[in-house]
């Protein structure tokens, strides 16, 4: 369990908005631009509160890492930039064992039953679900777009694989997100080092296995500045398309070819 000590809370910074990068490019940009003024307001996250260390109970099955559930929801009709991220994102709780995970999970709605513009985030304790966290700032994420009706099952498979250390990429995994949107849902898994292609390839292959993704599923790997799209074929994944810069946001490719 030495690894647990290595995950330290990062200094509070702006919480991210939309993990997917799929929508609301303008809002996202605005958020980044005018966030300075509100930053001070946001720099009082829940983690500054003194908390007792979460440890596995007697006879429980310890996890490799402690994890924290977060929930966020965008208030309809209000621009993101004027909202406090503290109001939008809530810590649900932290767990250290398999049993403690189920206690939370069984008392939360499934993502498919969420309404509105909502996200569940499950990140290692001490890593905030935002780009600016030290653990995420050089990282990226695999994104899979799902037609409605699949999110609950895929999310469960994804987080069980993460909690059970099925990805086999050492310390690289940061967390996972499920984003409930209007016409589709998005799941993603974040890792620390976007430039580590061996790691990102292994995460991609593990995702395909644990999610039972069908052929032709679009998988995108995104960093802040790049996005690469992959299509899963029976024999492996082929790179489809490479974009640079934020213009990739909102591209219709993923939507049209999402898992149906």
């Amino acid at each position: 369990q030495n690894n647990k000590a290595a995950v330290l809370p990062a200094p509070p910074t702006r919480l991210k908005d939309d993990d997917s990068g799929d929508h609301d490019q303008n809002e996202e940009n605005n958020t980044q631009k005018d966030s300075e003024k509100e930053k001070n307001d946001r720099e009082k996250p829940q983690s500054t509160t003194k908390r007792k260390a979460v440890v596995p109970g007697p006879a429980e099955h310890p996890l490799q890492y402690n994890y924290t559930f977060w929930y966020s929801r965008r208030t309809p009709g209000r621009p993101t930039s004027s909202q406090s991220y503290e109001q939008n994102i809530k810590q649900i709780g932290t767990f250290a064992s398999v049993e403690q995970f189920w206690r939370f999970y069984s008392h939360m709605v499934r993502p498919g039953d969420l309404t509105g513009h909502s996200d569940f985030h499950l990140f290692k304790e001490g890593i905030k679900p935002m780009w600016e966290d030290d653990a995420n700032k050089n990282g990226g994420k695999w994104i899979i777009r799902l037609r409605k009706g699949l999110a609950s099952r895929c999310w469960e498979n994804l987080i069980l694989a993460m909690l059970g250390e099925q990805f086999m990429v050492g310390e690289e995994i940061c967390g996972a997100v499920v984003s409930v949107r209007f016409q589709e849902d998005i799941i993603s898994i974040w890792n620390k080092t976007a430039s580590d292609q061996a790691t990102t390839a292994r995460i991609r292959d593990t995702l395909r296995r644990v999610l039972n993704l069908p052929p032709n599923t679009i998988m995108e790997y995104k960093t802040h500045t790049d996005s690469i799209k992959y299509v899963c074929w029976p024999g492996g994944c082929c790179r489809l398309h490479v974009c640079s810069g934020s213009s990739v946001h909102g591209t219709g490719l993923g939507r049209n070819a999402r898992v149906r």
């Binding site: 490799q64 189920w102 206690r103 069984s106 008392h107 498979n157 069980l160 694989a161 059970g164 250390e165």
Partner: peptide, 26 residues
């Protein structure tokens, strides 16, 4: 590293200790 597969995790879901709501659930 502590590794669990999906099947084992699902089995743990039915243990008594996994069913009580967390005391600090918001």
């Amino acid at each position: 590293r502590i590794i669990y597969d999906r099947q084992f995790l699902m089995e743990c879901r039915n243990s008594p200790g996994a069913k009580t709501p967390p005391s600090n659930l918001p």
